Computed example of a mutant assay.
Amino acid sequence: MRAAVEWAQPVLRDRLACWLHRPERSWTAAVAPRLVAGATATDDTEWRTETVTFTGTSVAVATVRGHGTGGRYMVKVPWTARAADGLRRQAGVLDQLRTNPGLPGLRLLLPHCVAQGEVEGRYYCVETALRGAPANGMMLRRTRRAALLASAGRAIRDLHHATRERTLLDRTAVAQWVDDPLRRLAEFAATHPRRGRLVDTVHRLREELVVALVGRTVHTCWIHGDFWPGNLLASTPDGQVTGIVDWDQAAPRQLPLHDLLHLHVLARRLARGDELGEIVVQALRCGIDRTLDVPADEAAGWLDGIPPRPALLLYWLRHILLFIDSEGDHDDPRWIRGNVERVLVNV
């Protein structure tokens, strides 16, 4: 029951966002057929808006279908400056990945931004619609979950292997992964009732990670950056991934463990209802393989020689930095307790 409730929370949040943002949805529904027509050099009477959702990241997403052709497109309109920056960045990332000759298989799973621009002073992007259903719901059925995780792992490893390079972790590289998130956590700790203990923990973590990482040679590569079942489309009932969406957090020269850990951590969260911070703490205590129910050699392969504790802490730090200031998280005491405080008081 708890897992079902936890899985339903983001769905309910998106439904609430839709209800609260009816004017934005109505405006997007009205302009979307015209934008698709412009992108495809057709008449706007050939297209109709089927649905419009409003995401927790303040983007109105319209599904537009052709009357006779059956073609489908997604029209995305951001309603905050941060959301607009994210969509522009995603369009650039997708262009780079689609033109990479080493990624023919992955290209089939990527949306394609066929047009972008401004309409009535507001940025928009028209994307091809991918087949498949959102993969979140498959996490509640063990057989489908296993098939989906295997398929998703194969797909993202194609990206990792095709773009990887050997990287010596010097102090500059480690500082980018460690100093920025710890600086933000230090700001958080300074306002916390237990500020003394938490500030000491932040300083200790920096020293620990620098010692563990500087001087290592690892593989770095392009990563998706938010690779979880909510950003996957899949076929049912076989659970094969048919699309990977929301590439605005993608980045080159990163550790592949970020995608692989995040996929399995969030799969467990969706299946069992645990907070991400709770899962990280358990993995620190009991091991990644036992916590995430994966073979030990597979979990070790994700880390590429980095010891499990610093690997988990790097993963957690990147996640926290991405979301601690995002809408719906930074002002949510439950999210802060479960994902920030929970880890800081247990490391």
Rank of each mutant, 00 (worst) to 15 (best):
V340N: 06
V93P: 05
D200H: 10
A311K: 01
K76P: 09
D180F: 10
G328W: 02
R253S: 14
V343F: 00
P101S: 10
H330F: 11
G239L: 04
L12F: 14
P252Y: 05
E278M: 06
R13H: 08
T42K: 01
L303Y: 07
P23Q: 09
H160M: 07
V343N: 03
V211N: 06
A152P: 00
E24V: 05
W47M: 06
L94A: 07
S326L: 11
V61W: 11
L148Y: 03
L344C: 02
D329G: 00
S326G: 10
E46S: 11
I244Q: 04
R195M: 09
L205E: 10
A17P: 03
A190G: 11
R272M: 05
L97Y: 03
P33M: 05
Q9A: 15
P229K: 07
E327K: 09
A30Q: 14
W316C: 10
R122H: 08
H21K: 14
L182Y: 10
V11F: 13
L109G: 01
M139I: 06
A146Q: 13
A84H: 03
W177C: 02
V59Y: 03
G71M: 06
N136M: 10
G102V: 02
P237T: 05
R154S: 14
R216Q: 14
M138P: 00
T63W: 02
A271S: 11
G215W: 06
R164K: 13
P256N: 10
A30P: 04
S235Y: 01
R157H: 08
Q9P: 00
V202S: 07
V280P: 01
W316Q: 11
P256A: 15
R131Q: 04
A146I: 09
E118H: 10
W27Y: 15
W79H: 15
I244C: 01
L140V: 04
Y315C: 11
W228G: 00
E127N: 09
A311R: 12
T42E: 10
Q90K: 06
I320P: 04
